[in-house]
Every structure is written in C-alpha cells, then in structure tokens.
Design a protein around this nucleic acid. Structure first.
Lengths: 419, 419
DNA sequence: AAGCTTTTTTTCGAGCTTCGAAAAAAATAT
DNA sequence: ATATTTTTTTCGAAGCTCGAAAAAAAGCTT
C-alpha cells in the first residue's frame, strides 16, 4: 500500500537522469562480463571512450568498481594493455533466504556475487505459526551475520524466495503450500528486523533469473523454467524480462486446466496440470488410489526415486502414472506455447530426475496441440537440485537492485570513507 | 530480413538521443490528450516549462504540431489563457487496410487521426490466388488515393491487419483462415507498390490497440480482447504493452487445449477452445453433428442470429451448443488467468451478440479454475462490430510509428518548405 | 478606464553531459 | 634505443535541461 510509486504514463528524461542511467549501464556491463576493460565497456554500451573513462573513474573512486590487480595472463598483443575492471566485492553485501517446504537456507553474498557464509537446515514449516516462521528466518540470518567472515559487513538488501504466490510489489507472501497461513508480510517483518529493504519473490522466478545468469547462451531472451516437485511451478522469461502476473507473482502453470472436472488438485480444484504431474499426483496414481483422493502432504525424495526405479523396471501402474504426468505436462505446454510461442524449457527439481519416464508421452501430447507444431525442435534440459539455483537467483536479484540504487545516490565521493 | 536492427543488450543513452526522446514524449502527450497546453504537457511529461516551450515551438515550426485557432470556450480563470496545441492534421497521412474473410476495407487517415476517405467491400478471399489477393489490396488503396479529398497527400506508412498469424517483424502473413496460401509477404509487396514502410498486424492485436485509445479508462494497463467470430482470436495488453509471441503475432487463445482429444478444430487438431466456441463449432453442435465432423467454411451472420434466437426461445440443442461454448471459453479464461492474473475482457464480434447465452456456463466454468478465483469480479464488455475497431487500431499503430520517426529526422527547419 | 493581480509562456544564463580530437601512457616490434 | 600500436586520459566544443526572471495576456478593482 504505502510507498507505491505513482505510475506515470510518459515521463520525459531529465538531464541529470542521463548520467544516472549511463552509470547503471556501465555497472550492468561489468556485472555481466565479470571483468571488462574500458574499451570493452565502451563497445557494449556504445558510449564514447571519454564518457566511459569519466564514469568508470568515478565508480572506482566511489568504491563500486575496482581495477583488477592480477595482471591478466597472455596479452600477446602490442600496445598498451587493457586493464580489467571488476566489481568491488566490498561495495555491498546482500542476504538471500530460501524458504521451501520443510527447508530453510540463508546466504550472505558480497557485491561480486561470491557467497561469504551460508547455512541450510530442515524446518517443519507446516507446523509453525506465522510468527515462528518469520522468527526462524530472522534467527538464521542473525546467525550468519554473527559468523566471523560476515562480521562488520553492512547488509544493503534481503531477498527471500518462497513457494507460492507473492504480491506484485514483492512485500507479502499471498499463499504458499508450505504453511496454512496466508498473507504473511515477510517483507515488512524482515525489513523491521534488519532495517533494510526486503523483497519477497516466487521460487520459480528466481530459478529463471539464475538460469539467465548461469547460462546466458541457452537462456537468454525467451525461456521457461518449470519446477517439478511436490507441486509444479513456473518461471518465465519473455523478451529478456521476467514475466510476472499483473497482480501477483504470476505464472501458475501448474494450475492451468488439463482436464475439466478431472483429478483433485492440492489447490482444491479439479483437473489442474499439477493434479496429474505433481509428486503427490504421480504417487496417488501409481498406488492405484482414486483421482478423488485428497493429496498427501509430502513425499520423501528417496520414495520418489524408488517409484521411478519401479517404473523403469517393469510395466505397471508406476509407469502409467509417469505417462499420465507427461501427458498433462505436454498438453499444458501446448496451451502455453499457443500463447507465447515455443521456447527452451528447463525442468528443475526432483521430478526432472524422471524425465526419461515422462518424455515420450509429453512429446506425444505436445505434438497433438497447435502450440507444439514443432515439438521435436523444443529443447528440454533437466536439473535435479533446485536450491542452488533459487539462492543464486535471489542473490542476483538483490545485487542488480543494488546496482540500480547505488548509482542513484551518487555523491562525488572524494577519498573513500573507509574508517 | 533486411533492415532488422541488431538487438543490443544495454545501449547507453547518447546526448543527442535526449532531445529526440523528449520530443517523442511531447508528441505522445499531445496525441493522447488531443489538445493540450504547454503547461499541461509540462505536467504530464514532468519536464520543465522552458524545455516544453523550446520543444513545442520547434515542433510547431516543423509543422508537426499546431496551435488551435478556436479560442476554446469558457476560460473563466484569471491570467493569461492557455493556448491549446494539437496535432497538425497535414503533418502526415497514413493508410489502413483491413483484410478479413470475404472482406476488404481501406481508409486514408490524417495525422490527427481523422479518416479522410474510406471504402469497404466484399471479396471472395478464399477463391483468390496470392497475387490476386495482394493485387486487390493495392487496387483499393489506389482508388482511395485517387479520390479528391485524398489527392496530393503523401502517404508515410501503411498498416494492414489480417486474421491469423504474422511474423514478429510484421512483414509477412504466416497463416490465415482467409486463404489457403501461406507465407504471403504483404509487407514487401505493398512496400514495393507504394514506396513506404508497411506493417502487417494481427486483427485482434489491432482491436486491443483500438480499445486502449478509445476507452483508456477501462482498457489501460491490462486487458484482454477476444474476437468471437468464425474462429476465435485474442489481443492482449499487459503492463500497458501489446503482448505478442516471441516469434509470431502471438496469443492463440482459440487454440489452447480445452479437452484433450476432443472436438475437431479448424486447425486440424482436437479439443481447442475454438472447436467448441467458434461459430462453426456452435453451429455443428446445434445441428446435432458429430464433433468429428469437418468444420464448414463460413456461416452468415443472419444464420448465427437465428441460431441464437432459437436458443433464447426454447431449451434444445441450440441452447446446449451455446452452453458448451461458454464452458470452453470459461476454462480457457481459467487457464489464461492462471498465467497472467484476471483482467477486464472485451468480447468483440458477432459471437458477442450471444453473450447472454454463454455467460452462465462461462462464469460457472471459470469459477471451477484456480485462475478464476474471483470470477464475479471479472468484467466482460461486448461489442458486435469488429471492423471499425480494427481500422482504428491500424490507424493508431501507423500514427504512433510516425510519431516515433518524425521526431528522429529533426533538422531545425527554418520556414516551412511548403512548395 | 487605468492600474493591479494572476497565470501562462518565453528568454537567458548556468551547469551538466557527451563527444571528438589530441595527448599521454604503456606495452611490443624492429 | 627508437618506432609502432593500442588503450586511456585530457580538454575544449556543442547541446540539452533547468531555474529565475521577464514578458505577455488575460481578468479583477477601484
């Protein structure tokens, strides 16, 4: 509610914005490249060398960028060697929190994106009250900040990723499968505790952000990240930007309708894709239970692995369950591709370990749809562990926020104020 | 192919771009407002009065804007009266072409958006070859330009709207239900004939553009335009921008999957929303034919009206056909809303005239889905005639293109070169 | 009717910013 | 040791926006 910026339809560019934007461009170019010389930055931003020289020397003086000391090996070329500029690791520090079903992880990350300290632990999320859930997050963050390596670092931003939906502003968790409570204002509570801005993000969106940073060759302008675990989530990047819903965190791929009035879904409705392809749905189907049976709350990864092994070993209800899951996903992709055109897909999470079992029916289903015209050309990649991706996505989200802010408050600092 | 701009990841803002952008802002503000004083422009663009004064006097000198001569009535206020600035109608001229099944319309529109001449006619599109189809378009445009009111006007751009899919660049029709030919390069052919840039757009996208201009109160940042006619199309505006697919014109709502392996669709596949809610589907269902029966090619508007009347009059297969159509649309909206959150909907075209018949089952279906949680709050508006909307959308698309170009070629013209 | 007040628009100088050209710096090649 | 090549910095020019002040154009007051 408060602090919501008024949406101006067409704001002119003021003269002082210009420098701010170009500083942002330089920072962003360096972050993408990791290391870049002034000449390279000039090339990617298409600004003149003089401008880059001016901006980068400002940024170095302010302690945001730093010239790399390591003399950078084989420059066999003639001429003055390029000096590599990188992000100054000490320019800022951010914290990431990953909150999943029965799981909590916290990392402290420096401005260059390196993890300083981190910790993961089990947490019975569904048994906790709202205050306890928030309290556990705060406690684990505090414990990281107390560690020796993190001591003395001033945190500039916290990003929390959670399963489920969040509001578009990124302040509040609206609904999540990890708890029975709704509308938990994680943003506000954490901001109060640590006195820094906090963003609450959807876990799958952070996976998408992470993939884009980790593998920009493959995941560039348009791609889809699907999390296959107990439920099914999606993160979508279209035209180089994370796609979110208009009001909430968006992209509920798992709750597109596969069969009207079909199998009972965890969300209480019927026929959702998730009600056929979520872990609980595969388990239910494989165990011969009715599609009307209420979903069970959690399934061990080892149990799912045994189920997949059985399906690989012999024909039977297990194999049929995976077939149905593939079919539901395939029709879901068909409808999705009807709307946005086909794009590379990353299947992430424990369910991706059984992709061999679902791929045939998935491709068969997708080929039956208008959106899947070129189903053979659609590329699927799999990755079993989602947690590192979510954490990386949070870190990059936090750091790019900083990039956009640091530049704004750009008082010409003469002499770094390192006390 | 040619002339495609290289997509730069992060281009810095050059100093000379600044004026160009701000000029664009001013033009855009005036176009939206219709008439605006310098003070009002300064307020909406948040640029200073001095800047607006400089830019607007340039634009007036260049013949792009013009001060309104009509002294604008009841200014009861004290102080120097504001002088209204508007678009100079003679600054440019554009042509719109609307090409639908058995229908062709051409308009010539001035820079202020007023239609100068126009003509509509029947055209047996499906019987024509590729060259004939293009030729008919060219001929009808030529005839408009020969008319007295249009004489002497130099055309700056042509926008053609067509049913079906186009490539993302807007040069080529990829597929359309109005002809059996595929990949017709309307853009290239028309550009050759008239020597001006041509854009090929999807009809429903132009409806969306038009709604945004005609009723910005209701259709602002997020809304959905659905064309209900022989087939079903969609135009989608998200976060204030027209949403198109990544490769093609996007948004094939009609070909999302309603029932896997269900009714036969015009596209050759099965179970698409259109296979239940398109005119041909309703007709097929009402006449008791099997869902496997091939769709007929066209149905008269009067026949559809009689069908609707029968459905209103008594229970029977006609009413059931509309019920099924509503159900398919409802589940389609449910899946769509799962992805993008609910938004206002405009139902356009002859099918919208029967909205009373489809609304109950539509709302019932949508309420069964996760995306339709607040189904009562979702607002539907209907409009029977799509042609004026498509033409308006084309005109605005053409004119806003001009707005962005005119500013670019901004040689300080001293004294208008009216020969 | 003449002067006063109010509001809009224009003018003018100051302060930034970017750019191109030239100079300086820092290496290798001869 | 000198020449060449490439990168980086420096410096003046040009252009843009902004704020303040002036000018313009009305209504209001006496």
């Amino acid at each position: 509610m408060a602090g919501e910026e008024t949406y101006a339809m067409s704001v002119g560019i003021r003269h002082d914005d210009l420098r701010r934007r170009n500083r942002a461009m330089v920072i962003s170019a360096v972050r993408r490249a990791g290391q870049a010389s002034r000449t390279e930055i000039a090339a990617t931003t298409s600004l003149s060398h003089s401008t880059i020289s001016a901006i980068s020397s400002d940024l170095i003086a302010e302690g945001i960028l730093a010239e790399a000391r390591n003399a950078e090996v084989g420059t066999l070329k003639r001429g003055r060697p390029q000096v590599a500029i990188g992000l100054d690791p000490d320019a800022a520090t951010v914290v990431t929190i990953v909150l999943l079903f029965n799981f909590l992880a916290v990392s402290v990350v420096d401005y260059a994106g390196r993890t300083i300290v981190e910790e993961r632990r089990k947490l019975k999320t569904f048994d906790l009250g709202e205050d306890e859930l928030v309290g556990e997050c705060i406690a684990l963050v505090r414990r990281q900040l107390a560690k020796r390596d993190a001591a003395g670092r001033r945190i500039l931003r916290i990003v929390l990723a959670i399963q489920g939906t969040t509001d578009a502003a990124g302040h509040t968790m609206l609904w999540s499968p990890i708890t029975e409570h709704e509308g938990i204002p994680f943003g506000e509570r954490l901001a109060q505790a640590f006195g820094v801005p906090v963003t609450v993000e959807n876990d799958c969106n952070m996976i998408a952000v992470a993939l884009r940073w980790r593998d920009p060759e493959r995941y560039r302008d348009d791609f889809i990240a699907i999390l296959l675990s107990h439920g099914i989530g999606m993160g979508l990047v279209l035209k180089g930007e994370l796609f979110t819903g208009t009001h909430s965190s968006g992209g509920e791929f798992g709750h597109m309708v596969h069969r009207p009035d079909g199998a009972l879904c965890r969300c209480g409705r019927r026929g959702c894709v998730e009600a056929y392809a979520g872990n609980y749905a595969i388990w239910r189907s494989a165990s011969g239970a009715s599609e009307d049976e209420a979903p069970i709350s959690d399934i061990d990864a080892a149990d799912m692995a045994r189920l997949a092994a059985a399906a690989r070993d012999h024909d039977g209800p297990e194999r049929e369950a995976y077939r149905k899951a593939g079919e539901a996903l395939g029709y879901g992709f068909g409808s999705l591709f009807a709307l946005i055109d086909p794009a590379p897909v990353a299947l992430v999470g424990i369910g991706a370990a059984a992709f061999d079992l679902i791929e045939p029916s998935l491709r068969a289903a997708i080929a039956m749809t208008a959106g899947g015209q070129h189903s053979k050309a659609i590329s699927f990649a799999t990755e079993t562990d989602e947690v590192p991706l979510i954490a990386l996505g949070c870190a990059m989200r936090a750091l790019t926020f900083i990039d956009q802010e640091v530049l704004a408050g750009a008082a010409p600092v003469r002499g770094r104020d390192v006390a």
